[in-house]
Design a binder for these strands. Structure first.
Ligand code: ZN
Ligand code: ZN
Ligand code: ZN
Ligand code: ZN
Lengths: 158, 158
DNA sequence: AATAGGAATGTTATAGCATAACATGAAATC
DNA sequence: GATTTCATGTTATGCTATAACATTCCTATT
């Protein structure tokens, strides 16, 4: 699997993700409505996180809704079902690029130069965090792990 | 060191933090002005994160400033100098309860019930994350690690 | 002590992010 | 085909954050 930072056949990326989404919807009886499907497609266009209002602009241009709740509701649906992730540092959303069986979010690598966002499996990091927290009597329910930095490509240009 | 979730002599906590802040200001030639000092004191009242506008309300009540930039600037100063941290999940700020030599932020444990925020040294987690990211050619500059869950006290009540 | 430069604060205005609440419409269930 | 449930449309508002510029307060230098 190529990283989001490397040049790759991105149509394959996006197609695979859409297929996963369609299958998931069928399997779980979810309704992947036109708005929801379109929002996922928009997020899948690039390995970037989009703000809700950026998504909304796109929807509005296509006549799929002009008010914030339309975008927020679709994004909420996608996030709840693991088809997209919220990037806390950016107040933005990105399409899920893999599968997270346990419903736990991965870690994110965010390039401050090209804005590309990549996922990193974080099971071990989450485990370590849970263990450490547990020693303090704390039960971790959701962990946010986000790294801001420079990808290889952007580092090379500097 | 007691955790923020356990009952403890919190005045000592707050006093120690203010002393550290005063010393740091002296050592680095920082200006811990009345507004900045007061904001730190407000954050130190409890192990909770406060939104900028909550801080602002307090400042306004004391005649120390009524406009958002006053609060944001003081908070920015405190965060830049490691005296406070920003909690991304909450869009809120909390006083630093320890010392982070390398200028790297710790991990945070956030109780969803009592809103208490505690720090956890995260050097090993950050190292692991950096290593994993490095394998993908990514250089981590800043890492955000936040865990939402239940503290022992609140778990006990359920 | 005067003064010039820089740092902090005051102030106005606006931009950006998010949701409550209620109305309407579509689709699954019975 | 009536009922219930889920999704969308719409209005309004609240919360979070910063740009831009004026003013005041320190500090260092003369
Ligand atoms: Zn791709
Ligand atoms: Zn990059
Ligand atoms: Zn304390
Ligand atoms: Zn608690």
């Amino acid at each position: 699997m190529k990283s989001a930072f490397e040049s790759h056949n991105h149509s394959a990326c996006a197609d695979a993700a859409m297929t996963r989404a369609t299958n998931l919807a069928a399997a779980r009886g979810l309704r992947l409505t036109p708005v929801r499907r379109r929002v996922l497609e928009i997020l899948l266009e690039r390995h970037r996180a989009l703000g809700a209002y950026e998504v909304l602009e796109r929807l509005a241009a296509e006549g799929l809704g002009k008010q914030p709740p339309v975008a927020y509701r679709a994004l909420e649906f996608l996030v709840e079902n693991g088809l997209a992730h919220r990037i806390q540092r950016l107040n933005a959303f990105t399409a899920c690029q893999s599968v997270h069986e346990d419903g736990q979010a991965p870690a994110f690598l965010i390039c401050r130069e090209c804005q590309t966002v990549d996922e990193l499996d974080a099971a071990d990091l989450r485990d370590a965090l849970s263990t450490r927290a547990g020693q303090a009597g704390f039960t971790v329910e959701r962990a946010t792990i986000e790294a801001l930095g420079l990808c290889a490509t952007c580092a090379g240009r500097a």
